[in-house]
Design a protein around this nucleic acid. Structure first.
Lengths: 353, 353
DNA sequence: CTGAAAGCGCTTACAG
DNA sequence: CTGAAAGCGCTTACAG
């Protein structure tokens, strides 16, 4: 427990020999129209410093009916290592703007009751705004009790007048496959996630976009779905490599870096040399994986930091410098965030180079 | 912004036809001595439900001079994937006890000014207690403004009447090396961190403890320091393997899993087969690494979740079920948390089996 | 330029 | 069993 009675505004005013009104005005630097002479200012400021005055935000918030705190509900991002950058960036931006982040983590598939309780808890604490962040890109039906200004990050609201900030999955996938096409590859596989996520759906679209752009007809055998893990990549990647000669891909676009890691392993087990025998592009730029693979993996970076920062900016800034695309019949608006390519050494020239 | 005026206690009292005193008593379930008839209770409860009443914690906190919020200062843990479990567990425990966690992340080597500002911000919000968590085990000189009840996690206060919760590094290292000794290894190297951390110092002690226990004389050539990264493990591990025959270790205890990953790579480059040619025990049980290596790595698990949970328990519970060891002349107290061994497949029988 | 007063939404003695 | 009143520490019209 924080002991000893704290210094209040009253103490400061008394010590400075002024009223608490004056002390309040000076400490809040509210000059608008009101002029306080230097000498008075100094007395108050000094008294506050000497007494170690720390304003009570509860009293301030109660009276002024606003709190400098933002509620941040996260669906398992706290436990998702590679998504925590989103959290950190959000917190930095909030601090930069003198706001506090109150983070409540709920489990991945928390029901309406759990999220409702989190929301309730936040609302009790009079947070001014709410951000709902997901660890992976998903489409969510917003709870009816969610305030309208709520911003979704790495998740899209299925309905309602909400703003959502998500990665530009389709464009990123297109760029990933383009990278392979430009290197002279034509038989390009997509080692896809099999859990039916929004990212999976969107990236498949981007994969086809790029193929179409280069007049490469799709080959169903080159679109394989597996569990989005090392094990899934090992199995799915093995199947791809084991395709009959002439059918085997010369390059693979992987749904994520972990699957790429499995694919690397499958290739090594079969004596293939990377990237000469097989070029690979991953997705996520996951720490400790992408850069540590042999060879280091070329991949699409998920813009976690940018999304976290944008969420706070959006919620605090009445008119942020963001392009919102309207989606659906409701006023749902979406901002697509760029996923830049990180070139390392897993892409070599293909047969059509 | 959260719009529309919210329902207050006054509204509920009015709707239920009682005074706000009665409404308050009913909603807080304060029965002590005071008896409220069922009928009155029901009216109040129903009114609250129908009006969607959400108590204002700022008003409540202001009046009752306590807040159900805990300040959680983290030194870069938000950006340290493998330490976020600590955060998640702390948050879960806080929620379980109806407390909110207000998390402020500061950079790894934030100066007293930055930490001071974080502290200030927390104090303004009247947090009842403070937890200071570090991403890696370190010894810290506490800021003079830190409240005395503050609990350190994964960090030890260098002085003052603080409680610190840290991993039992020495014991864990001893157990790791014992595992190797019991498998018949005698030439056991310690591939150590070279950045002079507290963990490095303590684990070296444990390494020697185990060796002594088995009457194995220390060999300075087997204690190598390198950067605690994959690259460091690759270089240091290579040097160890390149030792003259007879001097080369048959087993290596690594400071962390990332170094073990580098060591695995160095071994593979030299055509060694693991674990037959070399047994390895790591440290951290880092996600996406330890279990994904070939062969899967036997390692010591860092008790992040336990530490996070204990921190909240300690701060909230006047008499937690924890064993505190007194350290130093001050009243600093330390709790050592067990790091269990996670057995996988990187340890094989040694020459003395 | 400065201060007295009201009031934010609660809880908590204290009367009745 | 129930309510009127004081007060937590501030901010904000409003007077002077």
């Amino acid at each position: 427990m924080v002991a000893t009675r704290r210094t209040t505004l009253k103490d400061v005013a008394h010590a400075a020999g002024v009223s608490i009104t004056t002390a309040s005005v000076v400490l809040n630097d509210k000059r608008d129209g009101i002029r306080v002479p230097e000498s008075t200012r100094d007395r108050v400021l000094r008294a506050a410093r000497e007494l170690g005055y720390v304003p009570n935000e509860m009293a301030r918030g109660l009276r002024s009916r606003r709190s400098a705190a933002i509620g941040f509900i996260t669906a398992e991002v706290t436990t998702t290592p590679f998504a925590v950058a989103m959290l950190a960036a959000a917190q930095e931006e909030a601090a930069r703007r003198d706001n506090l982040l109150i983070i409540i983590n709920v489990s991945r598939d928390a029901g309406a009751d759990v999220v409702g309780r989190a929301l309730d808890s936040l609302l009790r604490h009079q947070v001014s705004d709410i951000v709902y962040a997901s660890m992976y890109h998903r489409v969510l039906e917003p709870l009816p009790t969610l305030p309208e200004g709520t911003v979704f990050v790495n998740a899209r609201a299925a309905s309602g007048a909400y703003r959502s900030i998500v990665p530009a999955e389709r464009e990123a996938a297109r760029n990933a496959v383009r990278e392979l096409l430009e290197h002279g590859h034509r038989r390009i596989a997509y080692l896809d996630d099999d859990t039916g996520t929004e990212a999976s759906r969107l990236r498949l679209l981007g994969y086809h976009d790029a193929l179409t752009e280069y007049d490469v007809g799709p080959d169903k055998r080159l679109h394989l779905q597996a569990s989005p893990t090392v094990t899934g990549g090992l199995a799915g990647g093995g199947d791809l490599i084991d395709l009959a000669a002439g059918q085997r891909p010369t390059a693979v676009f992987c749904f994520n870096d972990r699957m790429a890691m499995g694919l690397f392993r499958a290739a090594r087990h079969r004596g293939l040399s990377l990237p000469d025998d097989l070029s690979v592009v991953g997705f996520d730029d996951q720490e400790f994986i992408a850069s540590e693979l042999e060879p280091p993996l070329t991949t699409m970076r998920l813009p976690h930091r940018e999304m976290g920062r944008m969420a706070i900016e959006t919620v605090l800034d009445p008119d942020p410098d963001t392009t919102w695309a309207r989606q659906g019949p409701d006023a749902t608006r979406v901002a697509l965030v760029d996923c830049p390519i990180v070139r390392r050494s897993s892409v070599a020239a293909g047969p059509h180079a």
